[in-house]
Each structure stands twice: as structure tokens, then as C-alpha cells.
Amino acid sequence: MNPMPTITDEERSELRRHGILLTSVEELYNWGRSHSVWPLQFGLACCAIEMIAASMARFDIARFGSEVFRPSPRQADLLIVSGTVTKKMAPQVVRLWNQMAEPKYCIAMGACAISGGPFKRGYNVLKGIDRFVPVDIYIPGCPPRPEALLHGLMELQKKISGQSISGPEAPRHLRHDTSCEYPVPEFGDHDLVPPKNPEVWKVPESPPKD
């Protein structure tokens, strides 16, 4: 299948400067998706306080399109996992993720959501939500500043704007070979069953870069 011809951002801005408005369907679709990301009201621990601060007057996440934090996952686009995910809470997080309608995105905010953070040796701590849920953006920090969350949201917007509608690089909901339902872990005798989702959690073969 021939790839659709694309214009780079520089070419597009050049054309705009000359007064030619070129709007492809892809650009319009991505603009609509990226500038109206509505997060879910989901805060687990201390990073949730910084997320709330980002939604308040001084930092105002509404300027970026996240006008309202939806209480229902059916109406939300973005899951900001902010705080430590315990193993007891992990199936609930995956269930909420499954209930969100596509297109949906996930931001892992804070050290605990990325890797378990300072508590990763804990008996009830899940070492990173990306073991079960595909994370789009990781925001390190403990907790990250509200501006760091806004920067992460901007990175997510850039990522969405760079997605193409068709072809192998299309997002999850526009492809036919992906499932949007993720298996929910169950409570086992000593750990979650399964302890990770190998299709989501892809640890690189080589160790840290040398």
C-alpha cells in the first residue's frame, strides 16, 4: 500500500505564511484530538495534589483544552496516573482504563507511577503502571511541578499531532490488528496474576545504555 504523501511542519508553516491555508483531514483530526484532552478525575497520592494545582488558577490546565476533569471514565480521554499504584488498586486502574472509550491516552505522572518510585521494594507496590496499561508520556519527579505536568501534556499533544490516520503508524483505535481491551490482573496467592502484561511491558534486552 502506498504511503500517503505528507508535508512536514516547516513546509506547512511556509505555505501558511504565503497565505495558502492547507488543511488536510489528518491535521484537522489531530488538532481536534490533541486540543481537547479531557482527563479523568483520578488521583492516587501526592502527585494528585500537583495535578489539582495544575487545574487551579495559577497554572490552569484548561488553557490546554483540559477544560473539565470528568468523573466518569466513559467520558474521559486521558488517564493521569498520579501517585503510587498499589497491587490492590492495580486491577481497578486497568478496569477504569478499559472503560475509557478510544481514543484514550495515559500519562504516568511521578516516580511511583513510572517505576514504583521510592517505594518499589514494598510488598504492595506495583512497580510502574506501564506493566498493565500502555503509557504514552512519562513525567519524572517526586512530585513533578504543575508546569512539568503541563509540559508533559504538551508533549502528548505533540505526539498526537504527529500521528497519521492510516497505515501501520496509525493510533490504536484506527487499526484493525489491535484490541482496546486490556486484560485485568487478578488477585493471586502471593502476587497479582499475571504480574505484568508482556504485550504492554516490553523491557529492552540490553541493560542500561553504556
Binding site: I114, P140, G141, A148
Partner: peptide, 16 residues
């Protein structure tokens, strides 16, 4: 520096 959000966890977040 706080603007360090990334989409690649294994490659970018380990600083040498």
C-alpha cells in the same frame, strides 16, 4: 530543570 517529560522510559530516564 523540570521539563523532562518523555515517551521513552527505558532509553531516556536513566541518566549517565
Amino acid at each position: 530543570v523540570y521539563e523532562i517529560a518523555t515517551s521513552e522510559r527505558f532509553e531516556t530516564l536513566l541518566l549517565d
